[in-house]
């Protein structure tokens, strides 16, 4: 494995080995050891052409805990805002000797373009591209679900997950559907028809337009952010109505099974897709998702960078 571009490229064994590696790394980070020498002397570039808090600092923390050197590169304050092309940026990174690029980009497929090109030789890690995929988020979500509900099993066989909200614009939903399905979970998408993408009926999921019918029977409710910045059209009449039909509030929470958990990839629109009391309730694992994100991203960096690449040559 050289790049992490899409969950679709992972086998079940590879996905489970990343989760298992993350378990051990989490155990190490919980103890007194905060820093490991494994990636000493490697350079990892965080190339963020789109805004991000969690993912960027999470990758940065993960790289630093493995002793890699981190260069942060965001659209604001770099030549990207002057209109530099992805190719020229990549050539610059290659000239600086980047061993890996963690890329977030507004255009779906930008990481793939970078990986397929001859512009640079390092590993490419997709940290979210347009409305395509966000594989590290899906891996940390699976890690969190397995930790709470896995009962010691390596995969997520039989666990029922509802993904609720703006599926149309959500790369998190796409990656999660692929990974949860790969690991044996049963996924139900809940959204108004206007927020489901074309061709969703070919996805390996159930679809419901009625949140109340689904909420009581699932083990995990994963809320998605309503992505107002990507909405060029009118997708629902108004925020109050959306919140009433598709928001998670205390009333719906009370109908959920007592062992179930509430997730959200962040950032949250409190009061829109999730009410503040639910977000802060004991059933919410939203803050824990962020903490798990560092361990999972350490595992991703370890698997991609620590060993010699299996392909001929390497570096």
């Amino acid at each position: 494995m050289r790049h992490l571009l899409s969950i679709a490229d992972l086998s079940k064994t590879e996905a489970i080995s990343i989760l298992d590696t993350a378990v051990e790394l989490a155990r190490i980070s919980d103890g007194t050891v905060k820093k490991l020498p494994t990636l000493r002397g490697r350079t990892i570039v965080n190339l963020f052409a789109e805004d991000s808090t969690r993912t960027r600092i999470s990758f940065e923390a993960a790289a630093k805990r493995l002793s890699a050197d981190v260069i942060n590169f965001s659209a604001k304050g770099s030549s990207l805002s002057k209109g530099e092309s992805l190719k020229d940026t990549a050539l610059t990174l290659q000239a600086m000797g980047a061993d890996a690029v963690v890329i977030r980009h507004g255009a779906s497929g930008a990481p793939q373009r970078l990986a397929d090109s001859e512009w640079m030789q390092g590993s490419v890690i997709n940290a979210g591209d347009g409305t395509h995929e966000h594989p590290s988020q899906a891996l940390l979500d699976a890690f969190t679900i397995r930790k709470h509900l896995g009962k010691g099993a390596p995969d997520l066989h039989g666990i029922k997950v509802a993904i609720v909200g703006d599926v149309l614009h959500s790369r998190v939903a796409r990656s999660n559907v692929l990974l949860l399905n790969l690991l044996g979970a049963k996924v139900t998408l809940v959204a108004p028809p206007t927020l489901l993408p074309v061709g969703v009926d070919s996805w390996p999921v159930n679809i419901s337009y009625n949140f109340d019918e689904v909420v009581a029977s699932v083990d995990v409710v994963m809320m998605l952010r309503v992505q107002q910045e990507r909405m060029t059209d009118l997708f629902f009449p108004n925020a109050r109505e959306y919140s009433r039909y598709f928001g998670l509030n205390a009333d719906r929470l009370s109908t959920m099974s007592p062992t179930s958990i509430v997730m959200h990839p962040g950032p949250m629109n409190r009061g829109l897709e999730i009410s503040a009391d639910v977000a802060d309730s004991a059933r919410s694992v939203i803050v824990e998702q962020v903490a798990n994100g560092v361990s999972v991203r350490m595992a991703i960096l370890y698997v991609l960078l620590a060993g010699q690449p299996l392909e001929v040559g390497g570096k």
Partner: peptide, 23 residues
């Protein structure tokens, strides 16, 4: 005590699985 993350030959082989450390 797992030593995988501290090996000096990590880059010479494909990535190895990390084993449990329990102190």
């Amino acid at each position: 005590l797992d030593i995988t993350m501290h090996r000096d030959d990590l880059r010479m082989r494909p990535p190895r699985p990390i084993m449990p450390t329990s102190i």
